[in-house]
Amino acid sequence: MTLEEIARSVIMIIMPIFIVAFVLYAIRAIRGPTIPDIVLAIDALSFDVAAFMIILAIYFSSPFLIPGAIVLAVWAYALDIFVAKYYEKKEIGE
């Protein structure tokens, strides 16, 4: 067994864990109840999806799948900042 095959079999085993975690995050996002809760859940979900994307890139042995991760993470952060800004200030441009 080469290192790569080891990596792939381990990832194959842990993949369901990630999926279950996503579904749980999604349930929290669906249930709410307040907006910060939903945003927090989507935020955590996006960060984990970013990590999961890069791990799956090893599994599919295709490095071209990764650059989306950082973009997803940065926009999830921007969503946080925007909701925070909505609550804190009168005008968005201030």
Binding site: A26, A29, I35, I38, I42, L45, L79, V83
Partner: peptide, 9 residues
């Protein structure tokens, strides 16, 4: 925010 969640999915 929900539609952002849909976009993430």
């Amino acid at each position: 925010v929900y539609s952002a969640g849909q976009a993430a999915m």
